[in-house]
């Protein structure tokens, strides 16, 4: 998740009793059947993708550690067993890989892009608060890493895991269940919401735009898209996000090129047409700040 939310959550976690922790992370797991043995699980944190079948369960992201028993029960509900053989972390944020230790203890093999693992092994500086956060516990680190991509051939599915460079972070993967026509995009796609661009972790708005462009080449009109956050989506929702990001990039770049300060840019309310995207974790102000920071650093270098 968002580093901010994860750090707040982590602070709450360490401060609170085990009982309170569990309560804070208590959430019902809502399961949606997407056909061909593929499911979407919504609890608290990043949305989960799941493929089940004779070769075992393959899960995309695992939310927070205290939710593990509930997720396990949900997997058992659809698969007959709560065992998960493989887990892919779409990136390094705590709301997508917080359950890694619990699942590894249960026998899962956990994968991620090599930059996602690398970031877990070192302190990170939050792109929202500027505060340094310590390296993650080694028990949370994915044990298998890749550079460009991996494919899994299981449960009659071709599961394509593809790295998309410098979008939400520098270690993002998207996962396409070809047979089911389901694309899990991690936090490279927030449905109907401004996305969090983790600029301190290599995230860029240009990478977001490229990643969504690429996603559209994979999917057809019938595809279902699991966003990192927000409700299950279809192709038109990805196009809406791509349009919003492309327009945002142009609008903020104009201010950066004109030499406007961040305050002046915010005062100009450049994203007034996109207020509806500001209802999530990243409100309009935060989004402008992130895009401005990103573009100010890169446009100055490239122009």
């Amino acid at each position: 998740m968002l580093r901010l939310v994860s750090s707040i959550a982590a602070a709450a976690l360490f401060a609170a009793s085990a009982h309170a922790q569990t309560r804070a992370f208590d959430a019902d797991i809502v399961v949606t059947d997407l056909g061909s043995g593929v499911f979407m699980l919504v609890g608290r944190g990043g949305n989960i993708g799941l493929s089940v079948g004779e070769d075992g369960a393959f899960m995309v992201d695992d939310q927070f550690a205290p939710l593990t028993p509930r997720i396990e029960a949900a997997v058992a509900e659809v698969a007959g067993s709560g065992d998960v053989r493989f887990i892919l972390n779409t990136h390094y944020h705590g709301d997508h890989m917080g359950g890694n230790e619990e699942w590894a203890d249960r026998g899962a093999t956990i994968f991620a892009h090599e930059n996602a693992r690398q970031r877990l092994t070192e302190p990170q500086v939050s792109s929202l608060t500027g505060e340094e956060e310590p390296a993650a516990d080694p028990a949370l680190w994915p044990i298998i890493t890749f550079q460009s991509g991996v494919n899994f051939y299981m449960n009659g599915e071709n599961v394509r895991v593809m790295h998309v460079p410098n979008a939400h972070t520098d270690g993002d993967s998207i996962v396409y269940f070809e047979g089911a026509g389901v694309l899990h995009m991690g936090d490279v796609f927030w449905n109907g919401l401004f996305p969090y661009i983790d600029v301190n972790a290599g995230g860029t708005i240009d990478g977001y735009i490229r990643a969504l462009d690429y996603a559209l080449t994979l999917i057809n009109e019938d595809a279902r898209i699991i966003p990192g956050h927000g409700p299950l989506a279809e192709r038109a929702d990805v196009i809406a996000a791509l349009d919003m990001l492309t327009e945002t990039r142009a609008l903020i770049a104009e201010h950066v090129r004109a030499g406007d300060s961040l305050e002046d840019t915010l005062a100009a309310q450049p994203l007034a047409d996109y207020e509806s995207f500001g209802g999530g974790f990243i409100n309009t102000r935060r989004f402008i700040e992130l895009v401005y920071t990103d573009l100010a650093a890169r446009l100055v270098l490239s122009e």
Partner: peptide
Amino acid sequence: LLPRMTYDSAFALHL
């Protein structure tokens, strides 16, 4: 007799 998993460029195991 087919591998269950393939990779493209590079791959690391931290076991």
